[in-house]
Amino acid sequence: MEIKNKEYLDDMVRQLNESGTKVFVGCLDEFINWGRGNSIWPLTFATSCCGIEYMAVGAARYDFARFGFEVTRASPRQADMIMVAGTITHKMAPVLRRLYDQMADPKYVIAVGGCAISGGPFKKSYHVVNGIDQILPVDVFIPGCPPRPEALLYGMMQLQKKVKVQKFFGDVNRKTDKEE
């Protein structure tokens, strides 16, 4: 069948494209985000006290496997998310940045505990970075010293929510292209 008056359709597609909507892949986006959001792989990264609570969240009582976080990776290249649990010092900062740069997009950062957020109790020290947001973009902050495991879970679920409303195609999956 031949479509008559198809200008309005072309017009609509053009409009949608301009505003960034993907007509077809929109549904796919939702599906992919459902998958992505429920299987965020964290990097095993812990520098100090908060890291022990992070381990506790991984153990049986709190069990972050319930939310799809259990596949902790030792290599940044396989991780989706980095939980910065603990104090970041001047000597560690370039290393952390390098770890972040080595992760594949889309990637997320959670700052756990007072130290990662602002330097915490060590704010006045000569060797502590006052907040990792100076060196990395942070998605979720979880305050506490250390935060309770429940707080950690809550923070991780906030990240899941964020992931689920993001646009995948043309946005987070191509971030690097855009920056280049």
Partner: peptide
């Protein structure tokens, strides 16, 4: 060493005695 050197000993020199206690817990948290 030094990737988690927080400079606690220097910080203690400008803290009152009760304040220094708080930092000692965070040395070896176990």
């Amino acid at each position: 060493c030094g990737y988690i050197h927080r400079g606690i000993e220097k910080m203690c020199e400008s803290l009152t005695y009760p304040q220094t206690l708080a930092l000692s817990d965070r040395l070896d948290y176990l």
